[in-house]
């Protein structure tokens, strides 16, 4: 992955402006490069915000629902490594109860199980 892009993602990950989440979703999670998608998903999890965690949990093909196992597993590991897991558990519960896609629900249920075991 390009070093410059990694720096930009890192800067956006710690940026206080909420618009940084939109930039990460638009340019990172939609990238064709698996490394960029993986790095972006981890950055969104690190932000540990409602909007950033929602991007990697409830959207099909992004974060834990990514078609690339490496991207999905990296995102799950980053979620498991969070110190404050309250926001992510809340989103996982909302997803398991209200999301229309069964695949997304199943993935959210699996992550919640892993959180309970960790």
């Amino acid at each position: 992955m390009n070093k410059k892009i990694a720096e930009i993602i890192d800067a956006l990950a710690v940026h206080e402006d909420n618009s940084s989440i939109q930039v990460l979703e638009e340019l990172g999670t939609n990238s064709a490069d698996n490394e960029i998608r993986e790095y972006t998903s981890r950055a969104l999890v690190k932000k540990n915000m409602h909007d950033s965690l929602k991007v990697v949990i409830i959207n099909q093909g992004k974060g834990i629902n990514d078609l690339s196992p490496s991207v999905a597993m990296s995102t799950i590991n980053e979620i498991l490594s969070l110190k404050d897991k309250s926001e992510v558990i809340k989103i996982l519960d909302d997803t398991i109860s209200m999301h229309s896609d069964e695949g997304v629900k199943e993935n959210a249920r699996s992550v919640k199980s892993l959180l309970a075991l960790s």
């Binding site: 390009n2 410059k4 930009i8 890192d10 800067a11 940026h15 340019l27």
Partner: peptide, 19 residues
């Protein structure tokens, strides 16, 4: 170097240019 002190728009522009 990209940093959190930079505006988001500038960071986005740099990313687009790199792509």
């Amino acid at each position: 170097h990209a940093s959190k002190e930079m505006p988001v728009e500038d960071l986005k522009a740099m990313w687009i240019e790199l792509n």
